[in-house]
Computed example of a mutant assay.
Amino acid sequence: MSRIAVISALALAACGTANAPEAAVPVPGYQGIETSLLADDLVRFDVTMTNVSQPNQLRDYAECAAAQYALIRGFGFARHLRTNVDEKGGVWVADAVYTISPSLPRGLETLDAEVVVASCAENGIPTV
C-alpha cells in the first residue's frame, strides 16, 4: 500500500470518529430522601434514585442529605457508619446511617457538613 493510500485511510478513519455521535449519559433521577432520627446523634437516610450509572451515586446522595441535616440540626460534622444499596426494576434505593456532631468525630469517614453541602450544590445533588 502506498504512503498516500495509508494517509488517506487514516484521514477517513479520523473523520468517521469525529462525526460519530457520543453515547448519551443518563441524567441521575433523584427521587427523594426520607430521614429517620434513630437517637439524638444517629440518623438514617433512605434515598431513592433512577438512571444510576454507578452505585456510589446513591452514597453521594445520602452523604449530601446527611451533611445538610447536620447543618439543620446545628451540627457541623457527620460520620458515615454504613450504607446498604439495592436495585429493583431500575429503581435504586440506599439506606445509610450517619452520626452527627458539633465537633469533628473520631473515625475515618467524617464529613465537614459545610464543605460537603457546597460540593453537593456544585454537582447538582439535592439535599434534605
Rank of each mutant, 00 (worst) to 15 (best):
V47M: 04
D86H: 10
T99D: 14
V47Y: 14
L104D: 03
A78V: 13
V52D: 09
S53E: 10
G90H: 11
P55V: 06
G76V: 02
C64V: 08
D41L: 01
K88Q: 15
D60P: 11
N56R: 13
V52R: 05
L38I: 03
A113Q: 08
E109Q: 09
I100Q: 10
D60L: 13
V93M: 10
Q68W: 14
A94T: 12
A113G: 12
V116M: 12
N56P: 06
S53G: 15
V93G: 09
V43F: 07
L71Y: 03
N56C: 12
V52E: 15
A78C: 00
T35C: 14
L81Q: 05
Y61L: 00
A96V: 08
T48P: 13
A113I: 01
G76C: 09
S53P: 04
Y61K: 07
I72E: 12
E63M: 15
D46F: 01
V91T: 15
A67N: 04
V52Q: 02
A65F: 01
V43M: 01
N84W: 07
P55H: 03
D112F: 03
R59E: 05
R82G: 11
V85G: 12
F45H: 02
P55K: 09
G90E: 01
D41M: 06
D95T: 15
S101G: 02
L42I: 13
G74H: 10
M49E: 01
T48M: 07
R44N: 02
E109V: 08
N84H: 08
Y98L: 03
V52M: 10
P102K: 07
V97F: 12
A70H: 00
A39Q: 04
G74N: 13
G89K: 13
A70C: 14
C64I: 04
T48S: 04
R106G: 14
V52Y: 07
S101L: 11
T50K: 02
A70E: 05
R73P: 06
Q68H: 13
R59S: 07
T48I: 00
Y98Q: 11
A70N: 08
L104I: 11
A62L: 03
L38T: 08
D40W: 09
N56Q: 11
A67C: 12
E109G: 04
G107W: 05
W92V: 06
N84V: 11
R79G: 08
D46E: 05
P102Y: 02
V115N: 07
A78R: 07
A66N: 07
A70R: 03
Y61S: 06
A65T: 15
A65R: 07
H80I: 03
C64Q: 11
V43N: 10
P105K: 04
R44I: 04
L108Y: 05
A65H: 07
M49I: 06
F77G: 00
A67K: 02
N84I: 08
